[in-house]
Design a protein around this nucleic acid. Sequence first.
DNA 1: GTGCCCTTCGTTTTT
DNA 2: CGAAGGGCAC
Length: 687
Amino acid sequence: MKLNQAQLEAVQYVDGPCFVLAGAGSGKTRVITIKIEYLIKNIGLLPKQILAVTFTNKAAKEMQERIETNIGKERAEQLTICTFHSLGLEILKKEYIRADLKASFTLFDTHDQLKLIDEIASQYFPRDYSENRKELLENCCEYISNIKSSLITLEEVQAQNTNLAKVFIEYQAYLKACNAVDMDDLIYKSTLLLKNNEDLRQKWSLRFAYILVDEYQDTNVSQYQLLKMLSSYYKKFTVVGDDDQAIYSWRGADSKNIENLSNDFKDLKVIKLEQNYRSSQNILELANLLIENNDHIYEKAIYSELEQGEDILLVECMDSEDEARYIAYKIIERRMLEHCKWSSFAILFRSNSQASIFEKILHGSNIPNIVYGGESFFDRAEVKDIIAYLKLIANTHDEMSLMRIINIPRRGIGKETLTKLTDFSKRYAKGSFECAMHTKFLSMLGPNEQKAIQEFCALIIKYQQAIAKGHKDIITNLITDINYSQYLQSSKLSDKAIKFKLNNIQTVIKWMFELMQGQNGQKALSFKDAVNKICMRQMLSKIDGEEEVNAVQLMTLHSSKGLEFPYVFLVGLEEGSLPHKKSLSTDAQIQEERRLAYVGITRAQKSLVISYRLNNKTVNPILTAFDKGVKLKKSRFLDEISYYKAVKKLKSQYKNANLSTEHKQKLASSALDELLKSVGSAAFEGR
DNA sequence: GTGCCCTTCGTTTTT
DNA sequence: CGAAGGGCAC
């Protein structure tokens, strides 16, 4: 496929800063990949001089693969294609001394972070803490994250002299004591580092002769500053973005960065990509109608030369279960009409919690499905445990991990001993692990506790030494070494649950192994780097070994960004759900919710089904009492797209009232199951 | 120090 | 209802 005029211009403009305003489905990823190829083949840049920043790991991986097919694996591997966060990690890894870290620094994940903030907040806000802890915690987290994403310095925070500021200062101090950084620090610290040190700025900006940034509308102040500093020598970059798809303002992203760009770079070249190659006319028409209700920085008009396409369906459902059944039915219907992969279907929702009902009904209907994202895997106790072990081995200063696992499995180290340890560590201002090995500390304990502590420390050190000697495979011994399965067995769980948990642990171990071996053309990582990658949720293979499976894709609107699917179901279009009830108060919030809906609609290539529920009845009748507003109201976004005009057909066949018992039965999971069997599901596999 | 029972809560998005 | 975490009793 050839490039159109605008795309070609975007690829060939290499003389200075360039902003590509790329509407949904306008081939922006293609422009980036082809531009990289162009920079190497026509401009003569070396692959290692090029940096491409994406927003998610998934996008980075995809881009890497695409480029590989264009310029060959060997050259593609020398490119730097990563997220802002991994770039930050890279910088901190190289400049750890200047960043006031030890080489073995590790990452605090969201759990560690929350626990720590909880602890600190309880000291500074004792009253609020007992009254509305959750809200307080949320505020503190938000505050800390805001400071970092807005690039506010520690000195500036200190000057605020508020309790929140004190929480921030103590939080940072604790992280430092743990020789750890949090997610936001990866960008915050590396940006400050380059900002305050001319030599480092020089060094890093010399390294990248050309920088490309995808999803630019979702960058925050710190990320933008980082881009500015990294490009300060050559001043050549291309950022690609679409203000209509800005959906991360809650994370500090600010599409004002788009405006700043033209202020900061007077010679900025702006190129608009307005032709959509993804969606049918009907889908695009609907998307445009919706997004017209938002404010825009640059006007743009997306158009498509594709066919009119199928009618968009708007489906009214009784409740979630009906909605899920209807979708299951539609999927099977489609598969009977034409050959298509399960993975051609996507179900998109506002929040992760909406996934489970679809998962359940699809599963009951023998429809393979995969739920993307959702932190559930990393929320499991056994996964947190094993990761804590890995983190502690990588970095013995990590107090959070130490405290988590010092008595898991049970070693007879209880509250008493831990209080002693904490006190000792405070008194001598040393890390707990160091103190735990101190004879003076050990002498304070009874013989059993002494032995337990010593054995624990010896275990950690044993692994550290083995890893230092390069025995990568030793981590596979860790689980047996600590007797984790025995620990699980003593917890009177079912055999099935134990097996499941052990399997989860094996998954983590497998990731570690893969990362350290360097599979899929990735370079082999050190133990410590592998641990950090896992903390960043950057593993090579999927959870449960589910590679690119042929299954219906279930995901949030946020994680659907950048993807496309032939058949899309956009579900739960009700007030409170989309727009979300927590985002109703300001117009800016509503606009962001509207963009979310826009992102959802524009994922669809051929067919789009939008559904909403009439009732909030959950699977659980008792919960209905809890949700006393049983009736749901149609989303305002549905009014805005005035479906009598844009949506060609209003399908209300699924209203409960109109549905005969027989019909309903047919739609029930068991019937779907039979329907599928009677046709022979094997006939529909593949293509 | 461990284990069990009780309360609480279900209200968003992710590197 | 069901998970998860805190508190309390052995």
